[in-house]
Amino acid sequence: MIQLCNIGKVYDNGAPALHDINLKIPSGDFVYITGSSGAGKSTLLRLLYCADRPSRGQILMGERNITRLRPRSVALLRREIGFVFQDFKLLNKRTVFENVALPLQVQGLAKQEIQSRVYQLLQYVGLEYKLQRKPLELSGGEQQRVAIARAMIVRPRVLLADEPTGNLDSDLAIEIMEMFTRINHEGTTVLLATHDRELLDRFPRRTIVLKGGHIVSDTLPQTAEETPSKEEAI
């Protein structure tokens, strides 16, 4: 369960990004965070993986308050979270295998275990035959699959994706979304920030709409109706 209570964020330059955000995301949920550019989608995700600290309010992940963590605790928290970004954030000088293995090396796992888990996961994303390639030798969709494999290698409880299909054409976007759906079915909570209406319609899920740093709607797919108030969603 992820819980955000009265979260506000004002950047150092005085620019407000989020206002009074209250959210509850149960474990195993699939949630879209949507809104136009500058609405606060990425800021909300950054708060969840502790890249930024909220100016006010509290964030609970499981039973842990992650609002003010020490650097080492932030590192340990991030080992339970998978990240996927629009620009893939892969190390272009390392091979596909090395990129996917990196989170396990960080955790100090034995070489054999790393090899077996990386191979399994590359099979899962269909890239086992390209493990010695460098990211720039792959297509955009393949690079994003490598990024997903790297995110999933730690068996995360939560997967955060910031515009993961932003750089892909619609066919590849669908392929990636199907992969997220599969990951969610296996029990991982997925939070996906996107402004792609087509994807939201094609893969309907709970959708939180942000505007100017406020939650303006929080809708569930079954009824496709806006919840009457934010409090009800909480």
């Binding site: 590192a75 991030r78 954030k89 955790q107």
Partner: peptide
């Protein structure tokens, strides 16, 4: 940045 995102300690 990537190392820090995947949970590497400082």
């Amino acid at each position: 940045e990537i190392l820090s995102l995947i949970g590497a300690t400082p």
